[in-house]
Design a protein around this nucleic acid. Structure first.
Length: 476
RNA sequence: CGGGAUGUAGCGCAGCUUGGUAGCGCGCCUGCUUUGGGAGCAGGAAGUCGUGGGUUCAAAUCCCGCCAUCCCGACCA
């Protein structure tokens, strides 16, 4: 069960963590993934937080089908051009060749907007604020568990609005109030927010907004996107409404999504040489109780454990009463699985009317303290909140230490190649300068920050007048 | 899809150069002893050597094709 060192071989470390923590494994069809019970419980916790925020901001859930007539995809030019290469096509069904092939959705704009054409007649039907939890399929060249799989799980929101201002506001609101909030508050991962450059935009979008998180190897992970689609899809699918002015108009669209990729981000943002490290708000088990006893003490210890468990109502908890492993083994296993807080209960603890608590977020030697049995009900929730906060703080410190503001192109490319991390510098908006950085350093513009500071006078690449600051990084 | 590497028991690997019928560690099963940081002893089960073909008396080993996985590129949530 020995894990490769994170610092020595990050990709091997990642893969071993995913597998030995029993989150997921590769399945039989190329690029597909089986999500195991522990990994799925984590995904369900993620879903719960995102779904709650989506509903709190006025959206309803729906479900559209996975199969879409191929001709529908062809109606929006940029969209089809962007997705066609990675679309899976169903050509046969019921033992016969289909008259019209069906595509397996790579995303659902097409079927949803073809349907919205029926649902939207008047400005009174707007805004239409819908979301679905679904699986999608994209035929990728290269896959990695959670980060990029042929089939993945996500939510996709699709909204329709009367005005462009309202749609833009929606796209930004989702980014900030749903995605940024969920990732920072639940995942304890700080994110950068901003616009994507034209080169990084979603096919068919006018503007793409994204949250970007920094992984512990210094690479960025696009963790959520929100698109302002203008009237492109409304026009392509013939969606019109009668406006307040009595005239006919096309509604303005947004779409937005987060996926099982977030699980990969969580692993890579918080994991360490001991394995996974889960924030209390998402951990399938927030607390694991490990009883410690000799044969003669077993009954007494287990009675103590039961009482302790009773006092922790409302906390997601696991009592590890397996007989086949000794305590030391269990300590290591639950640390690998990232459980935030472990309570060790043995005769010595019960004699002193305490339990020994060990925090996953601290180095092993500093992680232990004792909690009086009488204070468990108040102390454990407090500790969990403290762990959540300290995980966010250390992720933020890591990000700050890996955010650079170079003053020359040479310095920029050196950092991007060697140190990695986020690099913020002025940019002239010319795609050629963006392409040059990508060719020479592999780094792309992750975001153009949402509330830009005044850019420095000149583009760091070409020296011409800069329009704005850009944040570059190597990315997953 | 291009370049590189790797496929041998559930996991990690040795054996391949020099062909002779498969081994180690961990895990798994049984029993006893153990239990405050990855337990000990004894016994046991488990492998079409990725896959298809070829060479040979004989192939894990040599040759060819294919497949999968990982790394680097192109594509991407």
């Amino acid at each position: 069960m020995a894990l490769p060192k994170q610092s020595e071989d990050f990709p091997a470390w990642y893969q071993q963590v995913v597998r030995t923590a029993e989150l997921a494994e590769n399945s039989l069809a190329r690029g597909t993934m089986v999500i195991r019970p522990y990994g799925y419980a984590l995904w369900e916790a993620i879903q719960a937080g995102v779904d709650r925020r989506i509903k709190q901001t006025g959206h309803s859930n729906v479900y559209f089908p996975m199969l879409i007539p191929q001709s529908l995809l062809d109606k929006e030019a940029d969209h089809v051009e962007g997705f066609a290469p990675e679309v899976a096509v169903v050509t046969h069904g019921g033992g016969q060749k289909l008259e019209e092939p069906l595509i397996v959705r790579p995303t659902s704009e097409t079927i949803i907007w073809a349907t919205y054409a029926k649902w939207i007649q008047s400005y009174r039907d707007l805004p239409l604020l819908l979301n679905q939890w679904a699986n999608v399929v994209r035929w990728e060249m290269r896959t990695r568990l959670f980060l990029r799989t042929t089939e993945f799980l996500w939510q996709e929101g699709h909204t329709a609005h009367e005005t462009s201002e309202e749609a833009l506001k929606e796209a930004r609101m989702i980014l900030m109030d749903v995605y940024k909030a969920a990732v920072e508050e639940d995942f304890a991962i700080p994110v950068l927010t901003g616009r994507k450059s034209a080169a990084e935009r979603f096919p068919g979008a006018i503007a793409t907004f994204a949250i970007e998180a920094l992984m512990r190897d210094g690479k960025a992970l696009q963790s959520g996107t929100s698109h302002y689609l203008g009237q492109n899809f409304a026009k392509a699918y013939g969606v019109e409404f009668l406006g307040r002015d009595g005239g006919t108009h096309n509604p303005y669209a947004t779409s937005w999504g987060v996926s099982t990729r977030l699980v990969g981000g969580l692993i890579m943002a918080h994991g360490d040489d001991r394995g996974l490290q889960l924030p209390p708000r998402l951990a399938p088990f927030q607390v694991v109780i490990v009883p410690i006893y000799r044969d003669a003490e077993r009954t007494r210890v287990m009675e103590g454990v039961d009482k302790i468990a009773e006092s922790l109502s409302g906390i997601r908890m696991k009592i590890d009463d397996r007989e086949e492993h000794r305590p030391g083994y269990k300590f290591n296993e639950w640390e690998l699985k990232g459980v935030p807080l472990r309570l060790e209960v043995g005769p010595r603890d019960l004699d002193g009317e305490v339990v020994t608590a060990s925090r996953r977020d601290l180095p092993a030697k500093e992680s232990k303290s004792t909690i009086a049995l009488s204070e468990l009900a108040t102390e454990v929730p407090k500790l969990l909140e403290g762990i959540q906060a300290s995980m966010f703080r250390s992720a933020q410190e890591f990000r700050d230490e890996h955010t650079f503001r170079p003053s020359s192109y040479g310095e920029l490319s050196e950092i991007l190649r060697d140190a990695r991390g986020f690099v913020e510098a002025p940019w002239c908006s010319n795609p050629d300068c963006e392409a040059k950085v990508k060719d020479e350093t592999k780094a792309t513009i992750r975001v153009l920050p949402m509330d830009p500071e005044e850019p420095g006078a000149n583009c760091i690449v070409c020296g011409n007048k800069a329009d704005e600051n850009a944040v570059w990084a190597q990315a997953y």
